[in-house]
Design a protein around this nucleic acid. Sequence first.
DNA 1: CGAGTGAGTTCGTTAGCGCAACTGTTATGG
DNA 2: CCATAACAGTTGCGCTAACGAACTCACTCG
Lengths: 170, 170
Amino acid sequence: MKRTPFAQWPCSIARTVDLLGDWWTPLVLRDAFYGIKRFDEFQRSLGIGRNVLTDRLRALVEAELLERVLYQEKPARHEYVLTERGIDFFPVLAAMSRWGDRWLAGEAGPPIEVRHESCGHDADVTVVCSHCGDPVRRQDVTLRLGPGYPPKLREWAAASGRFDTDRTTL
Amino acid sequence: MKRTPFAQWPCSIARTVDLLGDWWTPLVLRDAFYGIKRFDEFQRSLGIGRNVLTDRLRALVEAELLERVLYQEKPARHEYVLTERGIDFFPVLAAMSRWGDRWLAGEAGPPIEVRHESCGHDADVTVVCSHCGDPVRRQDVTLRLGPGYPPKLREWAAASGRFDTDRTTL
DNA sequence: CGAGTGAGTTCGTTAGCGCAACTGTTATGG
DNA sequence: CCATAACAGTTGCGCTAACGAACTCACTCG
């Protein structure tokens, strides 16, 4: 299929998509959050091809979202456990799930409900700015080139008019 | 490649991934949030193949995240504008961006910064439960079969032990 | 000793992608 | 009046990665 690689693009969305943006990877991660750890469990739960699963698990281990841990010798058996990096991806899946609940669930209502034990309510997942606690919507934000934006591209990006450039230098 | 269709799965993540889970679609949406509306602008901005772009835009219009609006006659020209459904997807991209900033940006720092005009700070994007305002992390939540979970699968799902079943009926 | 489990690997098909060239409509310039 | 250029796609081709299905290997249990 010859994919375009996004990993080096000056955009955290593109980089994330490059890592996790195929059809199976987010679902493998979802299963990991369900507590699934073993190859066959993933395979049965998702109905994914075993070779594809091998590849995705390998990629997630390589990206350090999962860790391959030996849990028995003779025969050697490993399980895949979430790393800190992987655990931190949960909010993204939660936001995705929320969007799907709202726009794709239809009459029937959400297939899975998330209960927030900290407060005892069903979690009403919202993406907010932690400074003010208000929702982050497109209309509330402006974008600016950050320190990680490649100097070579700054001029071009500034000319595109899509970013603020009120920042003195980098 | 014969993709497995997730659209009917009892999982909002799977359904969302089925719609948007390839490599280009999230980036097309990102560009839409940047304010890009026209075919050639998308194409130049992303370097995406024109046939692939055609297909992605069509899919996004079909999924009602974008709307194809005539902006001039003679010759007929359309632009692609975000619908309410599309605009509501912004938080997902914001969460993804945040994760990428944290884990993939490295020394250089984030390539793009998001300023939250509502409060005047750089947006510190966090996924919270709106009832209590606390972050939604995996360890804070439990999952339960919801009303939209297919009755036929309930028994099997309950047996998997991954969901609470403390709910009286559906 | 045969069935079962867990974790992959191998193989053949096909569809998704990248690239480039082509189409069609209108405005602009010489 | 003809050549360009902008815009928005469509068509065709070759590659290769994603997929499903079948196979392998190491070990355990009855």
